[in-house]
Amino acid sequence: MFQMNLIKNLKTSYEIVLSNDKKLLCHLMGGKTVIFDTKTWEKVIELKKPNNPSHLHFSQNDDMLYIKNTVGTFCVYNTKDFQLIKTIKSGKFFQIEEGNFALLDNPFTILDVLKINDKKQVCTLNFETGIYQVLTELEGSHIKFNQSVTNDNTYLFTLYYLKEINGNHYSRQKLVKVKNPLTEPSYSFESLLELQNWDLVYFEPVHQVYIFVHKDYELTIMDAELKNVLKKSNLIENGIQSTDEYFVHIASSNDGNYIVLTSNDRVFILGFEDLTPIQIEEFKYACFAEFSKDDTYFLVGTWSKGFVFDNILKGVKL
């Protein structure tokens, strides 16, 4: 597959994450989080709390592992002996929404979407004190965390809402940027009316551009200010056959040479310069594909299996 060497076969893998020092690899199954030592590829431990994990992050120095499940429960483990340090759930005054989250510089502090007084907002939440700070005043039916842009201390969310036009209601989206959440919090949003109903959005940090993926296999690249469309490309015109698939994940290689698109049936590796397909593989019920942070590995997750490949594309520019 992908003309790459398969290093490790995994079971169900909704998400696969390497520690920053590359010593540990985690993958999320339906009822547990499984951790491997990347030197031996032997299993280190299985963490059964929280049940139904959906997203995880290592702290910057890899001393803690944060795991969130599908109903918003968090468990924090130390990585020395994987003892459970902290558990936090939705409470009387806030409800933690399902979805990905960001770790902030302060210990035990995250950026996430909370439902407060029946409204969903972007908030900081400190696990030790239980104190949260509401950073936005958004009106919408759903808010999804997309990505951390660490160099700019900016965090990207998509806001979904309904707009009434001539008596009819239409689904609309706005890209929300939250900046400096711990020091001088602010937020702004882009309507991007010409790019409505995108499936995925991703900020590519090497080239400093936004990539939008649409339902009709079209990709739109915009500049960092979201003022100009730099390029449009249709994957069907580049030889990809249309199916009933839908896109679920987007990422790039660390060197910026490649874009990875995951649909529910296939994984595409595209060359960044012209967005042409380099590798395409079928994976039934795919949900995740990314290069590791230093491009050493290529990671693919599906509802039934996971794969760790030796990335032969590292450093190769088309």
Rank of each mutant, 00 (worst) to 15 (best):
V209S: 04
T220M: 02
V209W: 09
E194I: 08
L226V: 05
L162E: 12
K177R: 13
L219I: 12
T183H: 12
N228E: 07
P205M: 11
K231L: 07
T220N: 03
L226R: 00
H169I: 11
T183P: 03
V213H: 05
S186A: 15
Q173S: 10
Q173R: 14
D199C: 13
I165H: 13
F212K: 04
L200S: 11
N197M: 11
L219K: 04
T220I: 08
N166V: 10
D199R: 09
L162C: 15
K231V: 06
T183R: 07
N166R: 15
A224Q: 04
Y210F: 11
E194A: 13
S191W: 01
L182V: 08
Q196V: 01
N166L: 12
L193M: 14
V209A: 03
S191A: 15
G167E: 13
S191T: 10
N168M: 14
P185E: 01
Y187F: 15
V229A: 08
Y210K: 02
E184W: 10
V178G: 03
W198C: 07
L195M: 10
L230T: 12
N180L: 13
V209Q: 07
P181Y: 01
L219W: 07
H214V: 08
L162H: 15
T220S: 01
K215T: 15
L230H: 06
Y187T: 03
L195N: 08
V178R: 00
F189P: 01
P185D: 03
V206Q: 09
H169L: 15
H207T: 10
H214M: 08
Y161M: 14
K227F: 01
L192P: 00
L230E: 05
H214L: 13
F203S: 00
S171G: 14
T220H: 09
L162S: 12
Y187V: 02
H169A: 14
V176I: 09
H214W: 02
K227G: 11
Q208F: 07
Q196S: 06
Y210G: 00
E204R: 03
S186Q: 12
L219R: 05
E190R: 14
S171M: 12
E184M: 14
V213Y: 04
V206F: 08
V201K: 03
E190V: 10
V201E: 01
L193I: 13
P205E: 14
L193C: 10
L219F: 15
R172P: 09
L230A: 04
W198Y: 07
E194V: 14
E164F: 11
Y170E: 07
I211Q: 04
L193W: 11
G167T: 14
A224M: 07
L193N: 09
F189Q: 06
Y187N: 07
N168V: 13
V201F: 01
F189N: 07
L219P: 00
Q173M: 05
V229H: 10
L182I: 08
T220A: 05
Y202T: 04
K227Q: 10
N168I: 13
I165A: 15
P185V: 03
V229I: 15
F203G: 00
